[in-house]
Design a protein around this nucleic acid. Structure first.
Ligand code: ZN
Ligand code: ZN
Ligand code: ZN
Ligand code: ZN
Lengths: 148, 148
DNA sequence: ATTGACTTTAGACTTAACTCTAAGGTTTAT
DNA sequence: ATAAACCTTAGAGTTAAGTCTAAAGTCAAT
């Protein structure tokens, strides 16, 4: 069992975020290095790397840091929460994610419709707009149930 | 052809956003009512409603207002841009969206794994954490190609 | 013709999520 | 043993995306 430990600069480079960002996440309870060196340097483990990966994926798809913290906090508060609480919370998040996947697919379809309608040539793109593509794609969904 | 026109309060209610938000979007070039009443009231058309719908969907899945503005600006700048430009830009966005859909699926799988591993009963949720669910789900993806 | 529910603008304020600066301690390489 | 390249903290500054306030004009109903 080789214990991987990364210093903050190494993790920052690996994860493509700034060192400040990692410290910021720590201050806000999202990511705590599993230990510190004698000199006080942060030392991150493999699990910490996983955690950063999760945070970044979740951020990319529109979760706020607070929402992500709630998800990750399940780990910390698990002894105070019942399985019932956890399951209810998580199932609700699954519904949110499914909604967002639908949003994505709608946008992807719009973009593809636009791309396909466009010849890609050198002339002015007089015909090529997102909204025209949207309009050929059925009615918009307003208000959007489950909106944040 | 009945011209739908909504005043700002009506659109705000329909779209579930504040009037301030709609004015904010206008100030930043994302949404302009197709006309104004004699008294200067904003009057929104059906196309404007579509546009709000698109903005909100795109926002929910993690696009910034600037990115959304770029997409919508295709409409305005279409005469200055070539089909080649438009197609290149849009195809790049499709790639981004596909990446995000993958992120979503990864998160959904994590959440579902957690939900399924959890009995949902009344006892303390000692076993139930996102990261355990993540760990059973293969290696994290770091660094994430195509990250913003 | 006045009340109440709308709308307008400009500008100040807030929150989230960084990002930077300063002043210093540590590690590694020459 | 000294420089370069790391790391630490605290705290200030920035950007995006709203949100709120004030002062005033408009519209519908009594
Ligand atoms: Zn074209
Ligand atoms: Zn063309
Ligand atoms: Zn459980
Ligand atoms: Zn249980």
């Amino acid at each position: 069992m080789n214990q991987v430990t990364l210093k903050i600069g190494e993790l920052a480079k690996l994860a493509q975020v700034s060192q400040d960002t990692l410290r910021f996440y720590e201050k806000h309870g999202l990511l705590k290095p599993h230990l510190r060196s004698d000199a006080g340097y942060r030392l991150y483990s493999e699990a910490d790397v996983q955690r950063v990966s999760f945070i970044l994926s979740a951020k990319r798809v529109g979760f706020t840091l607070n929402e992500i913290a709630e998800l990750l906090a399940l780990e910390v508060t698990k002894d105070e929460k019942s399985c019932e609480d956890v399951k209810r919370f998580v199932d609700a998040k699954v519904v949110t994610v499914e909604q967002r996947i639908r949003d994505m697919r709608r946008i992807k379809k719009s973009l593809q419709a636009l791309s396909e309608a466009c010849c890609g040539g050198a002339e002015p793109a007089t015909q090529c707009t997102i909204l025209e593509a949207l309009n050929t794609e059925g009615p918009g969904v307003l208000p959007h149930s489950g909106a944040r």
